[in-house]
Deep mutational scan, measured.
Amino acid sequence: TGEEYIAVGDFTAQQVGDLTFKKGEILLAIEKKPDGWWIAKDAKGNEGLVPRTYLEPYS
Rank of each mutant, 00 (worst) to 15 (best):
T1W: 13
T1P: 13
T1I: 14
T1L: 13
T1K: 13
G2Y: 15
G2S: 12
G2C: 14
E3R: 11
E3W: 11
E3G: 10
E4A: 14
E4I: 15
E4L: 15
E4Q: 14
Y5R: 02
Y5M: 06
Y5G: 00
Y5A: 01
Y5D: 00
I6T: 05
I6N: 02
I6P: 00
I6G: 01
A7D: 00
A7Q: 00
A7M: 02
A7P: 01
A7K: 00
A7L: 03
A7F: 02
V8N: 10
V8M: 12
V8Y: 04
G9W: 15
G9P: 02
G9A: 15
G9N: 15
G9Y: 15
D10N: 10
D10R: 02
D10P: 05
D10W: 04
D10T: 06
F11N: 02
F11A: 01
F11S: 03
F11D: 00
T12N: 11
T12Y: 13
T12Q: 12
T12L: 10
T12G: 06
T12A: 09
T12W: 11
T12D: 11
T12S: 10
A13Q: 05
A13C: 07
A13T: 04
A13K: 05
A13V: 03
A13R: 08
A13S: 10
A13W: 04
Q14A: 11
Q14S: 11
Q14V: 12
Q14C: 12
Q14I: 12
Q15I: 09
Q15C: 15
V16G: 09
V16T: 12
G17C: 08
G17P: 03
G17L: 04
G17T: 07
D18F: 15
D18N: 10
D18V: 13
D18M: 15
D18S: 10
L19I: 05
T20S: 15
F21G: 02
F21P: 01
F21C: 05
F21Y: 02
K22C: 10
K22V: 09
K22A: 08
K22D: 04
K22Y: 10
K23F: 06
K23R: 11
K23A: 10
K23Y: 07
K23H: 06
K23S: 07
G24H: 05
G24Q: 02
G24E: 02
G24T: 02
G24M: 03
E25A: 10
E25W: 07
E25L: 03
E25C: 07
E25V: 05
I26W: 06
I26V: 09
I26Q: 04
I26F: 05
L27Y: 02
L27A: 00
L27S: 01
L27R: 00
L28E: 08
L28H: 09
A29H: 02
A29K: 03
A29I: 15
A29S: 06
A29C: 15
I30K: 06
I30G: 02
I30H: 03
I30M: 09
I30T: 06
E31P: 03
E31Q: 11
E31C: 14
E31F: 11
E31H: 12
K32H: 06
K32G: 04
K32R: 08
K32T: 06
K32Q: 08
K32W: 06
K32C: 08
K32M: 09
K33A: 09
K33M: 10
K33T: 09
P34W: 09
P34K: 11
P34G: 11
P34R: 09
P34V: 11
P34I: 10
P34S: 13
D35E: 07
D35Q: 04
D35S: 08
G36L: 05
G36W: 03
G36S: 04
G36M: 05
G36T: 03
G36D: 07
W37V: 06
W37C: 08
W37L: 06
W37F: 09
W38E: 01
W38I: 07
W38Y: 06
W38S: 00
I39H: 09
I39R: 10
A40I: 07
A40K: 00
A40S: 03
A40Y: 03
A40T: 04
A40V: 15
A40D: 01
A40Q: 00
K41C: 09
K41G: 04
K41V: 12
K41P: 01
D42N: 14
D42S: 05
D42A: 03
D42C: 03
D42M: 01
D42I: 02
A43E: 09
A43G: 10
A43W: 09
A43K: 13
A43I: 10
K44Y: 14
K44L: 13
K44H: 13
G45P: 01
G45K: 03
G45A: 03
G45W: 02
G45Q: 04
N46F: 08
N46V: 09
N46M: 08
N46L: 08
N46Y: 07
N46S: 07
N46R: 10
E47A: 09
E47K: 12
E47D: 05
E47L: 14
G48Y: 03
G48A: 02
G48F: 03
G48N: 01
G48E: 01
L49W: 12
L49T: 13
L49A: 10
L49S: 10
V50M: 02
V50P: 02
V50F: 01
V50H: 01
V50D: 02
V50W: 00
V50E: 01
V50T: 03
V50L: 03
P51Q: 09
P51S: 07
P51M: 08
P51T: 03
P51G: 05
P51F: 10
P51E: 07
P51H: 14
R52N: 12
R52T: 10
T53K: 14
T53D: 15
T53S: 15
T53C: 15
Y54H: 14
Y54A: 10
Y54W: 08
Y54K: 12
L55A: 00
L55P: 02
L55T: 01
L55V: 05
L55Y: 01
L55I: 08
E56A: 10
E56M: 11
E56Y: 08
E56F: 08
P57I: 08
P57N: 06
P57F: 08
P57H: 08
P57L: 10
P57T: 06
P57K: 10
P57Q: 08
Y58R: 08
Y58C: 10
Y58W: 12
S59P: 14
S59F: 14
S59E: 14
S59G: 12
S59I: 14
S59L: 14
S59A: 13
S59D: 14
S59W: 13
